[in-house]
Design a protein around this nucleic acid. Sequence first.
DNA 1: GTCTATATCACGATAGAC
DNA 2: GTCTATCGTGATATAGAC
Lengths: 218, 218
Amino acid sequence: MNDATANSHAKILEVAEALYARRGFAGVGMRELAEAAGLGKSSLFHHFRSKVQLYLAVVERVLARVEERVQPILTAHAPAAERLDRWIDALVDAFAEQPASARLLLRALFEEDEFDAADWPEGQAAERRLANVLDGITRLLQQGMRAGEFRAASAPHVVQTLIGATIYHFASGEIGERLLGGPLLSAEAVRARKAEMKQFLHYGLAARPASSDEGGQS
Amino acid sequence: MNDATANSHAKILEVAEALYARRGFAGVGMRELAEAAGLGKSSLFHHFRSKVQLYLAVVERVLARVEERVQPILTAHAPAAERLDRWIDALVDAFAEQPASARLLLRALFEEDEFDAADWPEGQAAERRLANVLDGITRLLQQGMRAGEFRAASAPHVVQTLIGATIYHFASGEIGERLLGGPLLSAEAVRARKAEMKQFLHYGLAARPASSDEGGQS
DNA sequence: GTCTATATCACGATAGAC
DNA sequence: GTCTATCGTGATATAGAC
């Protein structure tokens, strides 16, 4: 693959990420996408055999960026609580620096039944990366619980909460900005979100002696 | 409006909710939708003037169900912590009993830029209901903080976390089921999610004396 | 590797019979 | 209130020149 081809690929993936994040798989046509990338529709089909393959390549690339940021933290020599803080920082950074990625990933979770991602190599790679990330953070939480750094809780449920709280926040757009009363992606807002999330988990997972009414359910 | 018309409306909204939740606004055609509802495409346009109006009517109906469940709790005579527990129970119940609604709402947050919801009465009603729900839970959290039941935190950030943790969980589908190792919507799984969320908030928001390292940021 | 031209099909929406 | 038929448009994808 020569430089010109590689550059076209990157450019296409870039504009496709932004468009798919805004209107989803079905909402973006190959014609519109080609024009936004600065070439003809047929040229697009030269680079990607089908719309599904292009879409999955975009998703895979986003997940690769996330995985690249968070996975190294898991094996650091540090207490689980400290690694968790750094993991949250890294995940937030990944979403904040590429504003389209949170929406794209959130949509991708649901659009998987418009086609079968397992039929395409890009889809298999994407699923593998997602599984790695989820598996890694689950193990980290379990390590912290076994070590007594965190209270006993369901690690998978905490992961669901952690992912939901992060990805929803950065995908929430106007709704989130109206609630917060300001921008979601400014440096200050990103810093604030990291601090709130880490503090919430610090309290929410802290090991402490049992009290009389803890875990009460209505 | 006679009974036949009302029944058609309800049936259409029902099948549209399921389809839009699965494939989104752009991914579902009026023809497919009409056939799923058991009538011809043109008959659909007799009940709803356009695809956008039908879609917004579906979203509005889902938000109405959520609002109906959670709003009465806000004004109950009970401590904020207890009302928060009941609010979480009600929100989870709303999503769990209508499995499509979490995905539909999550998608609706992003599909708002395929058209302008404010141009349609159904869209205005939906936005009003959403604002009511978010405003109500924000006030409840602020009441609890002022009363000293909760620690001082950013109420809007807690709302973002709470909404994200709930809606993402029930929209996560196969990903969530693989992580949890079981179904998401069984009575037992719903009960477990409620307990985990309430316990997490119980710890995460509990007022307590300041310790030396709380809120530490990396 | 990019283009024009085209094939085939589905889309949202409307007209008008019944 | 439901139907058939149709309009105009845009969808994904391919063929083949350059």
